[in-house]
Design a protein around this nucleic acid. Structure first.
Lengths: 225, 225
DNA sequence: GTCACTTAGTTGCATTATTAAACTAAGTGA
DNA sequence: TCACTTAGTTTAATAATGCAACTAAGTGAC
């Protein structure tokens, strides 16, 4: 029996111009050489300690990103998804603040708005679709979107990130109540976002224990309003 | 490079004596021959059209179950989880009404309460733990538990199933409101569950379109009460 | 400096959702 | 016929949510 082709693919999402963008790379080899595709590659049994590790390595090697929120999405498989044979890809999704994407040293990483994707090879459209569904759904009841912000951010900024992901406005009071309830942020003593022609906003950061873990609400964020 | 060992494992859950049980099988071959383990096996690239298909085949071959609610759980991997080498297992979980487990023709399938598991081989404890977490979480905001009931059931019975999974009582009025809201059940005209020494309960069944798909609530089922 | 403007952040109240308790319904069995 | 048990509904109290209007605090025009 011919061996199964084992790969990982990473749906790397970031926020650019207040909308969700996906990171893509031109494929170097056949099949689909030259086509923009998800960063991915073979699992290296000799060096990877599991598929998560393979995804982290892929992310580092292909995009230069050393730290991101990373979570397993789903495994896609079958005889038809890769022309080389029966293949299996463990898909992960990653969220990074856009500042961490270094366009100087990695000009080959291109960002595309997630609602204007076309021509993706293999079953990458399905994988991206699944990632978007997961991220949108999870954002509606968790702290997931904070991983798209940088180290520090204001509450109005964070609300904007939620709204960009969910695609609809959120009630300000309800939003602040929920975030408070999650108890994952700490105000940075005396640090305000100045320079704007209006009242400055308080800067916050994630509490240490939530750097990699998420917090979940009981009832969701109830957008609209 | 040595090939990666690709398998599927199925966490098959059912309700027995009003509590969640897991189906286990004695392993026939090394490693862990004779030990009770999750039904699982190699992916057959020649015959399986994807990993879901491999899981369905495994379920059919090892337990005789031809139809169940089946959903991909997570993929587990690494060099240490199987003594034969770097391995990868796509785990699925399945829910079946206990009646579908045919103890006559399959005496080798043993049921164990999920809170009294021990001695499971490989990383099966982790897989089962992940499945339980997923099922409990998903049950709190979806129609998932209906797949543990048979064709027809009463609302008090269904509430009992939710309570068995979630491990806490649910408010009767709230429960009925949520189920009504989900709009997935239809009362079976004139069919009541008789024979009990009290008022008979209305029998319901899943609407056709929800046989395989789930319905989700906006706000969850809010147990306790 | 004063004032118009803008967004940050809060308060109070109306609306809606959830829960608890008490009720009515309808069977069995003594 | 009556006690008992669980099904299913009603009512009222409580809690969560959302809206509108408020105060706060900066910038920039004049």
């Amino acid at each position: 029996m011919s061996p199964i082709i084992c790969t990982v693919d990473v749906v790397l999402l970031t926020l650019h111009d207040a909308s969700l963008h996906l990171a893509l790379l031109k494929r170097e080899h056949a099949p689909f050489a030259g086509v923009l595709a998800l960063p991915g590659g073979y699992i290296h049994a000799e060096e990877d300690s599991d598929t998560r590790d393979a995804a982290l390595r892929t992310l580092r090697e292909k995009t230069g990103i050393g730290s991101a929120y990373l979570e397993q999405l789903e495994t896609f498989s079958g005889p038809g998804r890769d022309p080389r044979g029966w293949s299996l890809s463990v898909a992960y999704y990653a969220l990074v603040p856009s500042r961490l994407i270094d366009h100087e040293s990695r000009p080959e990483v291109v960002l595309r708005p997630v609602d204007q994707l076309q021509g993706l090879p293999f079953d990458h459209p399905r994988i991206v679709e699944a990632a978007l569904q997961r991220v949108r759904n999870k954002s509606s009841y968790s702290s997931l979107p904070v991983h798209l912000c940088g180290e520090t951010f204001t509450l109005p900024r964070l609300q904007g990130v939620y709204e960009a992901i969910l695609g609809e406005p959120i009630n300000k009071v309800s939003f602040r109540r929920k975030i408070e309830e999650l108890d994952i942020l700490e105000a940075i003593e005396g640090q305000l976002e100045t320079g704007k022609a209006h009242r400055p906003a308080q800067l916050y950061r994630l509490k240490k224990q939530y750097r990699q873990h998420l917090a979940l609400t009981d009832r969701g964020l109830n957008s609209a309003g």
